Amino acid sequence: MTGIVKWFNADKGFGFITPDDGSKDVFVHFSAIQNDGYKSLDEGQKVSFTIESGAKGPAAGNVTSL
Score class of each variant (00 low, 15 high):
residue 18 T to D: 03
residue 3 G to F: 01
residue 57 G to C: 07
residue 2 T to V: 09
residue 61 G to M: 15
residue 29 H to Y: 06
residue 27 F to R: 03
residue 41 L to I: 06
residue 29 H to V: 03
residue 10 A to S: 13
residue 42 D to E: 15
residue 62 N to E: 07
residue 16 F to H: 03
residue 62 N to I: 09
residue 54 G to A: 10
residue 6 K to C: 11
residue 29 H to G: 03
residue 24 K to C: 12
residue 31 S to H: 07
residue 36 D to P: 14
residue 6 K to F: 04
residue 64 T to C: 10
residue 15 G to I: 01
residue 16 F to G: 02
residue 27 F to V: 03
residue 27 F to N: 02
residue 45 Q to T: 10
residue 31 S to R: 10
residue 20 D to V: 06
residue 66 L to V: 12
residue 18 T to V: 13
residue 26 V to H: 02
residue 49 F to R: 00
residue 35 N to L: 12
residue 52 E to R: 10
residue 36 D to K: 12
residue 8 F to P: 01
residue 3 G to D: 00
residue 42 D to T: 15
residue 8 F to N: 00
residue 44 G to L: 04
residue 23 S to M: 07
residue 58 P to W: 08
residue 7 W to C: 07
residue 24 K to V: 12
residue 54 G to I: 05
residue 25 D to M: 06
residue 2 T to F: 07
residue 65 S to F: 14
residue 60 A to I: 03
residue 52 E to V: 15
residue 42 D to P: 09
residue 39 K to N: 07
residue 19 P to G: 03
residue 13 G to K: 04
residue 63 V to N: 01
residue 15 G to F: 02
residue 16 F to E: 03
residue 16 F to Q: 04
residue 7 W to S: 04
residue 44 G to E: 03
residue 33 I to D: 03
residue 47 V to G: 00
residue 33 I to C: 04
residue 57 G to Y: 08
residue 20 D to Q: 06
residue 40 S to T: 14
residue 63 V to K: 01
residue 23 S to A: 08
residue 15 G to P: 00
residue 27 F to P: 03
residue 24 K to P: 14
residue 45 Q to M: 14
residue 12 K to T: 06
residue 29 H to A: 04
residue 25 D to I: 05
residue 5 V to N: 01
residue 60 A to V: 04
residue 59 A to M: 15
residue 23 S to Y: 06
residue 30 F to L: 08
residue 4 I to V: 14
residue 41 L to M: 05
residue 11 D to E: 14
residue 42 D to K: 15
residue 52 E to T: 13
residue 24 K to E: 12
residue 19 P to Y: 06
residue 47 V to S: 00
residue 52 E to Q: 12
residue 25 D to F: 03
residue 23 S to V: 05
residue 15 G to T: 00
residue 15 G to S: 01
residue 10 A to P: 13
residue 35 N to A: 14
residue 14 F to A: 02
residue 25 D to N: 07
residue 55 A to Y: 13
residue 55 A to H: 13
residue 12 K to L: 14
residue 48 S to T: 10
residue 15 G to L: 02
residue 65 S to W: 12
residue 8 F to Y: 11
residue 5 V to Y: 00
residue 4 I to K: 12
residue 18 T to R: 13
residue 42 D to Y: 15
residue 26 V to F: 04
residue 41 L to C: 03
residue 57 G to L: 06
residue 22 G to F: 06
residue 35 N to F: 13
residue 63 V to T: 02
residue 33 I to N: 03
residue 53 S to I: 15
residue 19 P to T: 05
residue 30 F to Y: 14
residue 50 T to N: 09
residue 25 D to S: 06
residue 47 V to M: 02
residue 50 T to W: 09
residue 65 S to Y: 13
residue 22 G to A: 06
residue 66 L to T: 10
residue 2 T to M: 08
residue 3 G to H: 00
residue 64 T to G: 05
residue 32 A to G: 08
residue 40 S to D: 06
residue 17 I to C: 01
residue 2 T to W: 06
residue 26 V to E: 00
residue 65 S to Q: 12
residue 37 G to F: 08
residue 65 S to M: 15
residue 64 T to Y: 10
residue 54 G to K: 09
residue 3 G to Y: 01
residue 47 V to N: 00
residue 29 H to L: 04
residue 24 K to Q: 13
residue 49 F to Y: 11
residue 11 D to S: 14
residue 32 A to D: 07
residue 6 K to A: 07
residue 54 G to R: 10
residue 7 W to I: 04
residue 30 F to T: 07
residue 52 E to S: 11
residue 28 V to C: 06
residue 56 K to P: 08
residue 4 I to P: 01
residue 59 A to H: 15
residue 29 H to D: 04
residue 28 V to T: 03
residue 51 I to S: 05
residue 64 T to R: 14
residue 5 V to E: 01
residue 54 G to Y: 11
residue 35 N to S: 14
residue 58 P to Q: 10
residue 58 P to V: 13
residue 21 D to C: 09
residue 33 I to F: 06
residue 26 V to W: 03
residue 33 I to M: 05
residue 60 A to D: 01
residue 13 G to L: 03
residue 16 F to A: 03
residue 12 K to G: 05
residue 53 S to W: 15
residue 51 I to T: 06
residue 9 N to H: 09
residue 34 Q to H: 10
residue 36 D to G: 12
residue 11 D to L: 15
residue 15 G to D: 00
residue 33 I to S: 03
residue 63 V to Q: 01
residue 5 V to W: 01
residue 23 S to N: 08
residue 44 G to M: 05
residue 9 N to L: 07
residue 28 V to Q: 00
residue 8 F to S: 01
residue 30 F to N: 06
residue 52 E to D: 10
residue 58 P to N: 10
residue 47 V to L: 03
residue 7 W to V: 04
residue 57 G to P: 07
residue 20 D to E: 08
residue 30 F to D: 03
residue 7 W to N: 03
residue 41 L to A: 02
residue 46 K to G: 06
residue 62 N to M: 12
residue 28 V to L: 07
residue 58 P to R: 15
residue 5 V to S: 00
residue 40 S to C: 15
residue 41 L to H: 01
residue 56 K to D: 08
residue 64 T to P: 01
residue 62 N to A: 09
residue 9 N to T: 05
residue 20 D to R: 05
